[in-house]
Design a protein around this nucleic acid. Structure first.
Lengths: 155, 155
DNA sequence: AACACGAGACGTCCCCAGACGTCCCAAGTC
DNA sequence: GACTTGGGACGTCTGGGGACGTCTCGTGTT
């Protein structure tokens, strides 16, 4: 796509025009709910305007409640589904749930970093990010060369 | 060191200023050729700037051909000497050479992981990394509990 | 003068990929 | 039992790259 090809979109309140185009594309389902819009840089390229202008347009949509913007993720179209969280939070939530459901009892060994990495198709760094969060919460402990284990109920 | 102590280095094109400082230190021999610069994280701390800014500065030096950056090793100063390789590659090269020189003939048992570990003062993991590379190349085979042996000349 | 816009530089965060190190527990061989 | 290899855990260090956030100049329109 490239809504305004040859016309560099001059005139008054370009950002408002861009907001209109995006609003229309969202309404038409061109950008599915729950998905992210193109990055600010990409949009600034497509519309042939400065990033600042794009941001102004996005701010309008955000004020209208059409999108939510998430740092380092992008501008996500609001929909029935809740806004997707960060990968490391998803992993942490998954483990937390397993512990609370009793699928992982106190003293049990958690899945290894490698298997979690597989399960969530994430990098080891991200997995460890999630794990260290649980460790900070006192839910689990880790032992060199052995693995990570669920702490006895602390609450 | 800490080139800009109290002065947080504000102004136009901070990254260019950082590049200048580093370029000067390289020229003065402060960072010997073949050696690595401080890590991006360390530099960002020393100059009191974000890692992104440091990376921009380093990109300048890289474009100038002053340094080469090696993943998981760092940014090393270009010099007469070739860029140092990874430990596991050094070990693999060493063994390959011994085989090709005939010091290790077909059927002979290779030095054990422990002795290689000593010889190159590397971790067992790294030694095994090198060994498995040679195994993939079909140069050697390993037998449980016995040792690793040189394959009959395959090429 | 007020506003809209352009163009950067810089910051912070999230995620990725890899090398290297430590450890532990096996299961074979001699 | 002392030696080997096999294989798996976690820990810590590198660099690579992308997203949004913030700020500050300058310029042109109204």
């Amino acid at each position: 796509m490239e809504p305004q090809n040859g016309r560099p979109l001059t005139g008054w309140r370009v950002y408002a025009q861009i907001a209109d185009v995006l609003r229309e594309q969202i309404a038409s389902g061109h950008f599915p709910a729950g998905g992210a819009l193109p990055s600010e840089l990409a949009l600034s390229g497509q519309f042939r305007v400065a990033r600042t202008t794009v941001r102004r347009a996005l701010a309008v949509l955000r004020d209208e409640g059409l999108i939510v913007t998430i740092r380092s993720k992008g501008h996500v179209v609001k929909g029935g589904i809740e806004t997707l969280a960060y990968r490391h939070e998803v992993i942490a939530d998954d483990l937390r749930a397993q512990i609370h459901r009793g699928e992982l009892t106190a003293g049990a060994m958690l899945p290894s970093e490698a298997s979690l990495r597989q399960r969530h198709s994430a990098s080891r760094t991200t997995v460890r990010h999630a794990l260290s969060a649980l460790e900070r919460e006192g839910l689990i402990v880790s032992e060199q060369g052995k693995g990570r284990f669920v702490c006895p109920a602390t609450g």
